[in-house]
Amino acid sequence: MHIAEGVLTAPLLGGGAALTAAGLAVGLKKMDYDRLPRVALLAAVFFVASLIHVPVGPASVHLVLNGLVGLLLGWAAFPAIFVGLVLQAVLFQYGGLTALGVNTFCMAAPALLSYALFAPLARRGGRAVSLVAGFAAGSLAVLVAALLVALSLWLTGEAFLPMAQAVVLANLPVMLIEGVITALIVQYLRKARPAMLQAGRV
C-alpha cells in the first residue's frame, strides 16, 4: 500500500525524504561494486514478484515480500526498494515523486528490522527455527509497514484516522500469507542457494 501524491503534509514529506536519504546513503556505502549486479537483479525479481496476485477471500493482494528483501539484502534493502518505487512512479505514475521518501521508508525500514531480528535465525537455525524465523520476518515486515503507513496518514490529519485503521486491518490477512510464503522461500533458498541468505554478503 503506497500513499498517493498530494496527501501528506510538508513536514512528513521532508521527514520521510531525510530518513530515506540516510537509509540510501548507508545502503549504497555498504554495497560494493561487486555486489551491485546482485542487488539490482534481486531488486528486479522483487519488482516482478510484486506483480503476482494472491487470492484473499474474494479479492486478491499483490505480494510485498519486503521481509524477504531484508533477509536477502540487509541494508541494501533501501536502494533496492527505492529503485522499484522510482520505476513505479516513472512508469505507472503510481505513488508519485514527492511521496517517494515516505513510501520508501515505510517499506524499507521494516525490511531492515526483519533483517536485524531474524536473519541469523533463518540462516543458521534448524529447519523448524528457520521456518518460524522466516514466517516472523515476512509477517512482521508487513505489519510494521502497515503501521508506518497508518501513522503517516494519521499524522496528516485527524480525518484520516478511520482510513489508517482500515489499512492496518486490511493488512492482517496479508501478514499471514506473506509470513507463510516468506518462510517457504527461505526453506527453498536454504537448500538451493544457502549463500543467498548471507545478507551482509549478497
Partner: peptide
C-alpha cells in the same frame, strides 16, 4: 516456489 526459482535464477 515460483519466486524462489526466480530469485535463484536472478542471483
Amino acid at each position: 516456489s515460483l519466486v524462489g526459482v526466480l530469485l535463484v535464477r536472478g542471483y
